[in-house]
Amino acid sequence: MTPNMTAVAERPSLRGAVAKQGNRYRDYALVAVFATEVLFWTLQSPAFLTLNNLLNIARQASTIGIMAVGMTYVILIAGIDLSVGSLVSFTGMLIASTLIGIDSIIAALAVALGFGAVSGLFSGYLVSRLHVPAFIATLSLMQVYLAGAQLWNDGGPLSVTNSAVLMLGSGYIGPVPVPVVVFAVILLCGHWVLSQSVFGRHVYAIGGNPEAARLAGIPVRRVTLTVYALSGALAGLAALLFVGRLATASPLTGTGLELQVIAAVIVGGCSLFGGKGNLRDTLLGVLVLTMLQNGLTLVGVSGFWQNFATGVAVLLAVLLSGDVLAKMRKKEA
């Protein structure tokens, strides 16, 4: 490593140290939001704090969570990936068709990760080389995949029978659902890379100040490409898990998932302007939102109030755990 690069690689952690002062409230606030929610739903419904339901929540959180790991990287470099929801639908159709031809989970996994990564590379190329704003680039791809998923089988679903794929999406290892294990592995790897590796530091550096990062010799384009490819590949993996869970690939499966994923990352305190956030908080964000949906259904809140409650909860979580409190304190000081 050149001395220059080391210097910049250190910088984000210095920034981090300065930012930590302000973030201390946030660290506790998010955990407090999480704990309050657990307590609230436990008091509201006797079915909430049961082993079965906790595993149910973990399983539901796992697919969103896998996508949220990729999205955290993307948002850390001040990007956004709106294509992931439609990508799940489209990759699902692709996986189901592959399985009709080659009835093997290896083929399905290769197609899922491969197509997802290629799609991500394409977004990354549009963003880093052609300087298309990430919002526009991935919004366009979102529409393309949506149309593609619908056109694939004339709007109809494709059923999936491969037992290994069904095991991956619906099976258990002991009492633990398989998707939860997959999510745990990805979360830990993602966390290690982000907090310990040079690549992780580059991600923070680019999010903090892309121009400074470029001048310091950080391969901004390559990191950007990798980050989008990661987000795409993880969406592909989520698609495979959904296919295995539902035993069917439908062009509707991914509808609205991108917003759920982005909401989870934002509730986790990731800054849309890049450079700030981590995977522990993303995990909390995912769990806070999943428990909310779960709790509302358990308690029997129906209809419009579910949407209303979700909106209010996201806003509250962001207000409590985001920069707002820190900024208010700064002003007072």
């Binding site: 049961t50 149910n56 439908s250 499966t253 509808t255 609205g256 949906q293 358990l298």
Partner: peptide, 20 residues
């Protein structure tokens, strides 16, 4: 429960209901 007309959401909401 309200779903978004997808199998994914319906499966999730129904699994939640089955907890209770």
């Amino acid at each position: 429960p309200q779903t978004d007309f997808t199998q994914r959401d319906a499966e999730q909401k129904m699994t939640d209901v089955l907890q209770v």
